[in-house]
């Protein structure tokens, strides 16, 4: 039984990692927390749903399209909104993304109603036996997809020139600009990657999850917790804490009251961050 629950936690953890990835990159390069990240995820799921209803494409098939769409949306959000608050106060930056969150929820509610919807006849369904645990096939596919996407993005950041530039801006904005790195381009890139990440996650999740305007909201909150727990701006930190939170949520929900599973997640974060304010992998800021 434990294996079953443990695997469930790991599967959820990989999704959390992917959703948090864009968030932590954005925070790393420009110090902004995107509170609308969860609503980007809802948007991706609706995009997959539209492709499914209109063109009869399975979410797994339309995934590249959704990723492109969300990446473009990330760029748009940066161009139209974020770019204009780069020098504004922290509160202004937070409120821009809050406004975006409310705006997106409104748009989705208006366009798709508040009803719960689902993709019909998904490509992958049923269960699968793995290490003695019976797991939902689409969730396994989603976790695997999330892991692959995470690895690709990690390789991009650590092995390519553009990725290094992104890291350089994250380390020290002023020094990076002295080295000829155009910081604003890197900001935009972070938003594009952020959009692409939730694009992947949304497509994968559309395969098995109900879709409604606020479906992404809890994921958005959890992702912020993941990023803060892992240490703002740290990709390995987000990986460890994403898995950890997935595990705590599922395992805790199984052995305690399911109603209290988030209590454990937030409690864990709270206790941890008070003891170690900079998070798992974060650097201490003065």
């Amino acid at each position: 039984m434990f294996v079953q629950v443990f695997m469930g936690g790991v599967l959820l953890g990989f999704i959390y990692v992917l959703i948090s990835l864009g968030l932590t990159l954005i925070y790393g390069v420009m110090g902004i927390t995107n509170f609308a990240n969860g609503d980007f995820l809802s948007l991706a799921m609706y995009a997959a749903l539209v492709f499914n209803v209109q063109m009869n494409l399975d979410p797994l098939v339309s995934l590249p399209l959704v990723v492109l769409l969300l990446a473009a949306f990330g760029a748009l959000a940066y161009q139209l909104l974020i770019k204009h608050v780069l020098k504004a106060s922290n509160m202004a930056q937070i409120f821009v993304t809050f406004g975006m969150m409310i705006f997106l929820r409104g748009i989705m509610q208006f366009a798709f109603t508040a009803n719960y919807q689902m993709v019909e006849n998904p490509l992958v369904s049923g269960t699968l036996n793995l290490f003695g645990a019976s797991l939902s096939k689409p969730q396994v596919v989603a976790a695997a997809g999330a892991l692959i996407a995470t690895i690709i993005i990690y390789l991009f950041i650590s092995k390519t020139k553009t990725g290094w530039a992104l890291q350089a801006v994250s380390e020290n904005r002023d020094a990076a600009s002295l080295m000829g790195i155009h910081a604003q381009k890197m900001y935009m890139l972070a938003w594009i990657i952020g959009g692409a990440c939730v694009g992947v996650a949304g497509s994968l999740m559309a395969e098995y999850s109900y879709i409604y305007p606020e479906v992404g909201a809890p994921f958005g909150t959890i992702a912020i917790i993941v990023v803060a727990l892992g240490g703002f701006g740290s990709v390995p930190g987000a990986f460890i804490s994403g898995l950890l939170i997935g595990l705590v949520e599922v395992v805790g929900g199984f052995y305690f009251e399911p109603a209290y599973k988030y209590l454990l997640v937030f409690g864990l974060y709270f206790v941890f961050v008070v003891l170690r304010p900079q998070g798992i992998m974060g650097k201490r800021r003065a």
């Binding site: 909104l81 504004a88 409120f95 821009v96 406004g99 705006f103 929820r105 409104g106 208006f110 508040a114």
Partner: peptide, 19 residues
Amino acid sequence: IGAGLDFVIYGLMIMLIAI
């Protein structure tokens, strides 16, 4: 007129104010 439009306006105003 349609559920959600109020949020759209509200969200839009918040973004404009913040910017």
